[in-house]
Design a protein around this nucleic acid. Sequence first.
DNA 1: TCTACAGTTCGACATGTTTCGAATTGTATA
DNA 2: TATACAATTCGAAACATGTCGAACTGTAGA
Lengths: 111, 111
Amino acid sequence: MSNCRNINLDHYAAIFKALSNPHRLQIFTILTGCCEPGTLCSTDEMMSCCVGDLDSQLNIASSTLSHHLKELSHAGLIEMQRNGKQVFCSINPSTLADVIDLFSNARSTPN
Amino acid sequence: MSNCRNINLDHYAAIFKALSNPHRLQIFTILTGCCEPGTLCSTDEMMSCCVGDLDSQLNIASSTLSHHLKELSHAGLIEMQRNGKQVFCSINPSTLADVIDLFSNARSTPN
DNA sequence: TCTACAGTTCGACATGTTTCGAATTGTATA
DNA sequence: TATACAATTCGAAACATGTCGAACTGTAGA
């Protein structure tokens, strides 16, 4: 009768909180549009995803950007990896899959 | 090369903000588990979705619940409809579809 | 009309968020 | 080692959020 699933409310709420700010959501969409999720862009590619590249697209102080990246990272939505002077950002595909799963189950509701 | 889509950041950010609170997320999951999205539970069914039923599952003041329902409603995630003394809540399937669409596009990234 | 029930609005308070500039850390190169 | 570049941390200010109890509104039934 009931199809309630025991999801971890706090975990998902933290993910949605990370996406609830327009700047963070913009970062998220830039990253999903940049690389195959789970891969790192090489610097040879037209579009890379280092912090500075995000900075140039976002029109906020770099300290603010850094704060937002930390929030996204803590929520498990992105991964960050230093390479020389730069830090490269990419989507964490496993968290993305979690979220897709949540909504997919919401759409098809068996009785 | 780039597969950037022009999404409405503020619209989606508002949706995620609505889902960023554990209590609101719980309401959302209760509602997705209760009825076929976009339909109203009749009072004859085992599980109904009026405000009082949510109240009994959430352990917060009813004024707080009311506030959260308004947030979900303003974000377009739920619909509310008075029937006599009670107000019934249901998922808005169109907003749900929007969100699923956003994440589905994020997962499969064409070059 | 009076009463009881179901929800909402109001006012207040504690807490959390967003943002910035300045100072700092880490890395590569001259 | 000195310098420049890339990014983070810190401290502060303005603003938003979550929560409650009390007061209120709307509806149905005695």
